[in-house]
Write a protein that binds this DNA or RNA. Structure first.
Lengths: 329, 329
DNA sequence: CTGAAAGCGCTAACAC
DNA sequence: GTGTTAGCGCTTTCAG
């Protein structure tokens, strides 16, 4: 494998001059530039990224941390992030936390060891005080999650409004007993969603119940489980804001198999507007969210900090969501 | 940020000794080892990976190339790969080809520029002659795809058997007019699946038709599109092997909305055994495949080549699949 | 416009 | 057991 010195020797110039050509620097005579370029092509030479990275102290790599990639919301988010990152000349490292604090710290260590230039957190497992010290190693950004105090850029959905809209819709459909599902109840984004939910209930003098609130609702199987829990209740909710289309699909399917009429016996509203909503029977009412845009904005923002070489500061971008009514409500 | 020299100075030893402690080499006195360890901890020092990588010419990073991450099969595959890679001390870079030859070459360039130690190809866009020259830069492995000649490790499903089993099942259900969907018809894995399909038909003296074969069948929307094409045919198939659960779900949903009885008017069999199969109405008959195992085996195999520092050679591992019967057939 | 020289932070012969 | 030395391959002052 040829290196820059070999190219320099063949062209009878210094490594510096070759480097200038490689990096499109000015002040190289047209003649030499041509010669060097042709030798580079001939020998099929490409610069060693490792050496470059060490020298410039940049990796052009971003890490994206998510609970689990195996979920269509995060799949789409990563797709959006990955595409935009590639356009901007960055690579993307995937890190899954599986809701584990230690795994999240491993991502932080990548930043510390100079393996990546920045981190996009698509979930937040640790306390902010644990994350904060890592800011000195490079920019960190919160995406799809919220924190009330953390001093970093936050790009998220308007969760409060989403929760509010969903429940307003259910109330308008005549429901008075409405339940809620958390992905994880320690997520502040989910807490805000719940606030919106509660606000809408309060405005109509309605209340929810503890036993109508479910935690760890992430995928279809969680939906199966949650339906079973609901089905055992004496006083059942008549409507449910699941916070997630997969969970909605699981609940709906199990309900139908158990003889429920949807939405008459149980109205269900999802979140994300995945294609899944269109193939179930009944189709699923949901909250539509701009996933790709969330990804793009996150990438642009973190690259801005990387390029600017500046410490991140708190700034909040809230993307708005929209209610999409289908057959399940 | 402290470096190895600083640690050495404080401990009044050479960088070498510090390096030995860092890498758990023997021949360091217990006393110095303790002293150095404690200073490392105190200063919160971690070695710069970039420098290490340059020196050792290793990155401990694998790239996984897939058409699009935004698909539950590839999401699960990446999950399996990513988990096992982390266990083995490797990071995973995600690369999406979007079925584009150029994007696949970008992955190859990562290998050439020393940005990764090996590549797992979850799809194959270019001719083998285009890929082959890159083998000199590091190990490449084919996963979930097949090639009749390529001299590299191939870990795939027994596609022939899967196609055969699926069609046998449809024939036993009384079907004589059976259609087929390709993800991409240039995929040799898919071709093998088709061979199995044809073998089963031939054994029963049945034939398929060109207009019952559909290409670019990847997701739910493709399923919608394909149903519309079927619905326009004069002579329609009565059963379909879609090669993909999403496509199956899309076809089934559109069929039901258009008044078809499933499976009476149209039997549909998917592939992958995603959870999606369990929430549609009717539930979807499919081919169950060991996705996580495919990922794990791929990682173990490529790491074996990386560690052994040897050129890859052709070897084929075929994982077997199983028919899972539900309501759609 | 061009090149010499220094050095990013680390590891690994090799000598003692 | 330990330290000296020489790079890995590149970019970037700085001097000419």
């Amino acid at each position: 494998m040829p290196n820059i010195e070999e190219i320099a020797k063949i062209c009878k110039v210094s490594k510096t001059t070759v480097s200038r050509v490689l990096n499109n620097h000015p002040y190289v005579s047209e003649e030499k530039r041509r010669k060097i370029s042709s030798v580079i092509k001939e020998l099929d030479y490409t610069p060693n990224s490792l050496a470059r990275n060490l020298r410039t102290n940049k990796t052009y790599t971003l890490a994206i941390s998510v609970p689990s990639i195996d979920h269509s919301f995060f799949g789409q988010l990563i797709k959006g992030i990955s595409n935009e990152a590639f356009v901007q000349g960055y690579k993307v490292l995937i890190c899954q936390t599986f809701y584990d604090k230690q795994n999240e710290l491993k991502v932080m260590n990548l930043l510390r060891n100079n393996e990546i230039d920045g981190v996009i957190l698509g979930t937040l497992e640790n306390e902010w005080t644990v994350i904060e010290p890592h800011l000195k190693y490079g920019p960190i950004l919160l995406c799809n999650e919220y924190h009330e105090k953390a001093s970093l850029p936050i790009i998220c959905y308007d969760e409060f409004e989403a929760g509010y809209k969903a429940v307003r819709h259910l109330i308008e459909k005549g429901h008075k007993k409405i339940g809620f599902c958390y992905d994880t109840s320690y997520s502040q984004a989910q807490r805000q969603r719940k606030e919106g939910f509660l606000k809408a209930l309060a405005e109509s003098n309605l209340q929810t119940r503890n036993e109508w609130t479910f935690d760890r609702a992430f995928n279809i199987e969680d939906g199966f489980r949650i339906f079973n829990e609901i089905n055992k209740l004496n006083e059942k909710p008549t409507a449910l804001f699941t916070g997630n289309d997969q969970v909605a699909a699981g609940i709906i399917k199990k309900a139908i198999v158990n003889g429920y009429e949807i939405p008459e016996d149980l109205a269900v509203i999802g979140y994300d507007n995945q294609l899944l909503c269109q193939v179930t029977t009944p189709t699923i009412t949901t909250i539509g969210i701009p996933i790709i845009e969330l990804g793009i904005q996150s990438v642009l923002k973190i690259i801005q900090y990387i390029r600017g070489n500046e410490g991140v500061k708190r700034e909040i971008i809230r993307l708005s969501t929209k209610l999409i009514v289908r057959e399940s409500t």
